[in-house]
Design a binder for these strands. Structure first.
Lengths: 124, 124
DNA sequence: GTACTATATCGAAGCGCTTCAATGGAGGCG
DNA sequence: CGCCTCCATTGAAGCGCTTCGATATAGTAC
C-alpha cells in the first residue's frame, strides 16, 4: 500500500480509503443475523405457520404431522423457538400444547424490518 | 391412534386432528428460507451495508477492510451475493469494483416482509 | 522479460447445524 | 402392579457452511 497507481482508477470510484460509514455496524449486523437465523429454517417456519393459523394451543402430535421430520427433530426445533421467546408450551395430561406468542413474533418482525430498512434505502 | 382418551383434553384444545391450514405451505416456507439465508450472515450484511452506504462502486480492498475475515472469504461472500443478484462487479485495471443492485435488494426485502407478514398476523 | 499487486479459485480443515434411533420420564389405563 | 402413549433428551452420524492457506490469473511497473 505504499505507492498507489492512482492513474488507473476511474474517476467516480474509490479504493483503499475506508472512510465509508456502513449503514449497519458490526454489532447491528450480528444482532440482525441472530434474528434472521431463528426464522431461516423451513421446519421452524412451518411450525410457526401452523401455530399462527390456530386460535387455540396445538399439541405436538399435530405439529409433528405438519412437517417432514421425526418427533425428536420437532421437539428440537420447538425448543429453539421457545428459547427465542416465540412460542410457549403447557402440559395437559400426556400432551404438550404449544401456542405462539404473537406479540414477540411481531417484535421480531419489526426488528428485522427495521434492520433491513436500513439496508434497503428508501424503496418500499 | 385407535382409542383416543378424549376426556383428558382441555375444552378449547385440539389434538391429532391435522385439519389446520398453515399460513405458509411447505414451498413458501422453503422459498422464504432461501431469501433469509442470503442475509443471515454478519459478513454479508456488513458487505451490503458498506455498499449501500456508498454512492459509487467500492473496490474489494475497501470491502476487505470493513469485515473481520481474510480476502478469500470476502471473495467467497461476494460471490454468494452476486449469485443472489444483490451485487454486481466490474473490473478496472487490477481492481474489482462492486456496487449494490438497489432494486434487487428492495425486492428481496419486500419478499421477506410479505412472507413474515403472513406469519405475523396483523401486528405492525 | 522479472517483480509486484489485486482478486478469484481451489482444497482442506474445522465446526456447527440438522437429523434420528435409542432412551428416559411422566402420565393414563386396566 | 404392568403396559401403553406422548414428549423431551441424549448421543452420534452426516453434512453443509465458513474459513483460510496456497495457488492461479490478470494486470501494472520497470
Amino acid at each position: 500500500m505504499k505507492t498507489l497507481p492512482l492513474l488507473e482508477r476511474r474517476p467516480g470510484e474509490r479504493c483503499c480509503q475506508p472512510d465509508l460509514v456502513p449503514v449497519l455496524d458490526a454489532a447491528e449486523a450480528e444482532a440482525l443475523t441472530n434474528d434472521l437465523d431463528v426464522l431461516a429454517h423451513p421446519v421452524r417456519l412451518q411450525l410457526l405457520a401452523v401455530l399462527v393459523a390456530s386460535e387455540v394451543p396445538v399439541c405436538v402430535c399435530d405439529l409433528e404431522a405438519s412437517v417432514p421430520v421425526k418427533q425428536p427433530t420437532v421437539s428440537h426445533h420447538l425448543k429453539l423457538l421457545r428459547a427465542a421467546g416465540l412460542v410457549e408450551s403447557e402440559k395437559a395430561g400426556l400432551w404438550a400444547y404449544y401456542h405462539v406468542r404473537r406479540d414477540e413474533l411481531a417484535r421480531l418482525r419489526r426488528r428485522i424490518a427495521a434492520g433491513l430498512g436500513r439496508l434497503g434505502g428508501n424503496h418500499g
